[in-house]
């Protein structure tokens, strides 16, 4: 919803018009989640959007990192409130209970929680429907794994997915992927594994190699920096990886079938823009799914020919069905585990 209005971009292309009129516009802060900056994934992507948002709207702002972001959360947020900051974007999910009380004590500051939901008139929450994009990735993989005219595809109807850690937040991706594959072709086997590390490419490479040896030809990596190793393994073995969060198609052109984009950068950028516009969506939860273009597949820049237009059209049709509500994608965070996947 929010993103759509931003994309239409009719309201304020002149920054001076809105920002100049509001002299009380305070500065911004970005509370970085566990893992810290430099994760080449969630935090870095959000930071990129944060910086872009600052530049576009003439705001001042700074990121805040802490080694103990879980325990220190409340004092950091309160300090930001004490300083009279205009808007604080919090990327750490574990602050969901703390943030509303802090926000209530600092009504003049706007608060944004990403990846979790928090209540409050001056709080906006941003949630991503990662399972929807993962469903499309699973459907695409199930369609492609039988496309044996592609030299990167073997005869076995096996695909794989590697999670960074076993948590519902990650299994949300995994289950969406598995559902997409099952719905498309029930005879496709989906291998699963966890790297238990978001920053270990070597482990990602080993896990992916092992999956390729078991007959897989497409492996989806939902494991931050660990995914770099999965992509490397796919390149070495002459198979495919599927990237996550950012567009990783160009990391190894032709070896990354697609990337499941989670546009944290766009979300943060857009929230900052609406804050600067004076249209901060306080009290609402922004759900960014396929319909809002908050998640989705990349545009197959290097793999268009290998996939073929027919398959791309099928995936597009599935996307439309999810947007229309004809396909319900399982959300592990809200619904728990489905009977076809128990989280192991």
């Amino acid at each position: 919803m929010l993103l759509l209005s931003a994309c239409s971009g009719t309201s304020s292309d002149s920054p001076s018009g809105s920002a100049g009129g509001d002299a009380a516009l305070g500065s911004a802060a970005l509370v970085v989640a566990q893992g810290g900056l430099g994760d080449e994934s969630y935090n870095d992507l959000a930071y990129k959007g944060f910086q872009q948002g600052l530049t576009d709207n003439g705001l001042e702002g700074t990121p805040i990192e802490s080694d103990d972001v879980v325990g220190q959360g409340e004092q950091i947020l309160r300090r930001a409130g004490d300083e009279g900051l205009g808007v604080v974007v919090d990327l750490e999910y574990s602050h969901a209970e703390v943030l509303p009380t802090v926000a209530a004590d600092y009504p003049n500051t706007d608060w944004v929680l990403v990846n979790a939901e928090a209540a409050g008139d001056n709080v906006a929450s941003v949630l991503f429907q990662e399972q929807e994009g993962s469903y499309l990735a699973g459907a695409l993989a199930a369609l492609q794994t039988v496309n044996t005219s592609d030299p990167k595809i073997n005869a076995d109807k096996v695909i794989g997915v590697i999670g960074g850690t076993q948590s519902t937040g990650i299994d949300k991706f995994l289950v969406g992927f598995i559902q997409g594959a099952r719905d498309t072709d029930p005879s496709v086997k989906v291998l699963t594994a966890y790297s238990n590390d978001f920053a270990d490419p070597t482990k990602g490479q080993q896990l992916a190699q092992s999956m390729f040896e078991q007959g897989a030809d497409i492996v989806y990596a939902v494991a931050g920096g660990t995914g770099a190793g999965v992509i490397q393994a796919a390149k070495d073995a002459g198979h495919y990886a599927i990237g996550v969060d950012a567009n990783q198609d160009g990391v190894a052109p032709g070896s990354v079938l697609t990337s499941m984009l989670k546009k944290t950068d766009v979300a943060v950028e857009t929230v900052l823009k609406s804050y600067a516009d004076g249209s901060f969506p306080g009290g609402t939860t922004i759900n960014l799914g396929l319909a809002e273009d908050g998640v989705g597949l990349s545009d197959f820049q290097y793999t268009k020919d290998a996939i073929g237009q027919a398959t791309i059209d099928k995936v597009d049709a599935l996307k439309q069905k999810i947007i229309d509500g004809d396909i319900k994608v399982w959300n592990v965070v809200e619904q728990g585990y489905p009977d076809y996947y128990s989280g192991n």
Binding site: Y93, S94, A96, N115, A116, E117, T165, Q166, S167, T168, G169, K172, V333, E334, G336, G343
Partner: peptide
């Protein structure tokens, strides 16, 4: 993960 996970929480909590 197995016993104490609070529903609606994205990460282990």
């Amino acid at each position: 993960q197995s016993f104490f996970q609070e529903r609606g929480q994205a990460n282990s909590a």
